[in-house]
Design a protein around this nucleic acid. Structure first.
Lengths: 214, 214
DNA sequence: GCGTAACCTTACGGGCGAGTAGGTATGCTC
DNA sequence: GAGCATACCTACTCGCCCGTAAGGTTACGC
């Protein structure tokens, strides 16, 4: 009527982002199968055929969500961990970035990520992302080990890295389920259990971030 | 014809177990949604209405699977960890029992468990199981802490326990995906990272099971 | 101002699979 | 060996939701 509201025609790039936003939201809330393309379209303020025209089928749409969120996360972490720092400092910065990211995207990322674990078509996609992460962590451990003049079998390295990544993912889930929790504090706790181990924690030995300008 | 084969009429209890076996198998292979009741029925060597008559709807059937497998696992672990042992020994025995169980039910349990994480209807069911596990681990840590004359906030305890459980679940996934891997060895690795932490491992300090009669 | 391309819609086809109606055979009790 | 409960089947209904066909409208170049 008076002011042509948000119902304007928008360029493709913008619509695509709106659709992805809506898709992440709905997939997170409902799960992949329970989510309907109609609901996603409606939530994006657009009609269904547009979604198909721009982002393709439901599976492709989900993969697109996964990619976007995954890339965002990867970059958030990559920007935090400089490779020339000592191992514990790198780990700490990586964890802080990771939990910060999850904390900021609670209902977006973590739930979406949970979805992908079960469904065959995406398990591979996700496994790839995780594999890269595991590789990074394993590389970090390997680097630290060599600096100590030690060496360890590749499988051992991989498994330890896998366990650390798994623990971190679990705490991300925990964080996503506890809206009041503080990402920074969660990162500290994770760092403690990862770096010190339960045995040390029981004896009161804890890990502390170095003080001073972060 | 000549010999009435396996097509005999069987008592309800037997059929129910056969159905559950088939359901676990099919759910694991396909995922909850992709699995069809027809396929489950066929795999159980029975017709679909029987499944509905005995185990109810698809969701109820899945929950029944979850319960059976969960109970089996819980008992396998409970039988291993006597409460009057030192903390690390309890943890070690629990882990060994757990990975032994997963190793023996690779394509049964771990994949079924993965399925349940994503789907809303079962997330609660699973969260309950996990919550009990976390509580047990937290209780163990608390016990060990008190023995040291120390005390720690409840949330801290819960989060550490959560991280340990998460790491363990992740390695269970890893184990399920690596048929050649040895459950016992995986348990040892998990014990190392859980008890000693990455910091110690890097310096060559590892955890070793006590020798002698297991 | 007119063609053309990009944006956007309403309205439908069609498949798949959960759940059921209604009926048949078999064993068990007395 | 009649009666009854339980095991078991074939063959359907029906709703949901993915994906699309066919057409309307706004912007933009020239």
């Amino acid at each position: 009527m008076s002011t042509p509201p948000t119902f304007k025609r928008l360029p493709r790039a913008v619509r695509e982002q709106q659709m992805l936003d809506a898709a992440v939201k709905v997939f997170s809330r409902r799960g992949f199968h329970a989510a309907s393309m109609d609901e996603i379209a409606e939530d994006a303020g657009i009609s269904k055929p547009m979604v198909y025209a721009y982002l393709g089928t439901k599976e492709e749409l989900f993969v697109a969500c996964l990619h976007r969120e995954g890339t965002r996360m990867t970059q958030a972490i990559a920007g935090a961990a400089a490779p020339d720092l000592p191992a514990d400092e790198r780990l700490w910065r990586g964890l802080r970035a990771f939990f910060g990211f999850v904390g900021a995207h609670r209902d977006g990322w973590a739930v979406l990520y949970r979805q992908a674990r079960g469904e065959q078509p995406f398990a591979g996609e996700l496994a790839g992302m995780r594999a890269r992460l595991v590789e990074v962590v394993a590389g970090m451990l390997d680097h630290a080990l060599r600096a100590e003049g030690r060496e360890v079998g590749e499988t051992d390295l991989e498994v330890v890295a896998y366990a650390l990544v798994g623990a971190t993912e679990s705490l991300a889930d925990w964080l996503a389920d506890h809206p009041e929790a503080d990402p920074e504090k969660t990162a500290t706790r994770m760092m403690n259990v990862a770096w010190m181990g339960a045995g040390q924690l029981i004896h009161g030995v804890t890990w502390q971030p170095r003080v001073g300008p972060s």
